[in-house]
Amino acid sequence: MGSARAHDLRTVLSGDDIARASRRIAHEIVEKAKGASDLVLLGIPTRGVTLAHRIGRAISEIEGIDVPVGALDITLYRDDLRLRPTRALEETSIPDVGIDGKIVVLVDDVLFSGRTIRAALDALNDVGRPAAVRLAVLVDRGHRELPIRPDYVGKNIPTSPAEKVRVRLSEIDDSDSVEISAGEDE
């Protein structure tokens, strides 16, 4: 069974695809916000933060101004805390400019049930009152359990609920790629 799994792994986005998708998302964010002056990007740990920094750099190159980028850990707002052993917290860092009156773009790697984003919206509520909140994801794999939709999507990838989507980014892993593997029994 172990060797069969390795064959099930298929790459759906290469490193170049991820780079192009991030740049396109950066353009779309700037276009919709009519500039970059009110933008704040908040990544959801771990890989959402890495993506937020990449998109932030791309926006800076397009618009010529630095965009504040931070991290928003949602662990303390999860709705499944009691179903699993206690989780360690990840870093939260809100840029000094704050989020009041800003256009906050949440950035995550994979959008699945939508529960993470629900928790992130609750967390934002305790941080301040943005003018608008938008959502950028590298992969939308469907199977939403809440009425949440992304504003910017790197790639829509239809999956079965049992499959696993693995995002690798060079800052954390060795290289950039998005892979899908067949579901495993846990």
């Binding site: 850990d73 303390l76 707002y77 360690a88 917290l89 870093e91 939260t92 860092s93 609750d122 305790d126």
Partner: peptide, 23 residues
């Protein structure tokens, strides 16, 4: 170290205007 690291994140949350967490 897990307790100290968790405490550091909790301290950062205590700087916010709404200090309450739903956890």
């Amino acid at each position: 170290l897990l307790i100290l690291d968790t405490a550091a994140e909790m301290a950062a949350l205590s700087d916010r205007s709404v200090k309450k967490l739903p956890t």
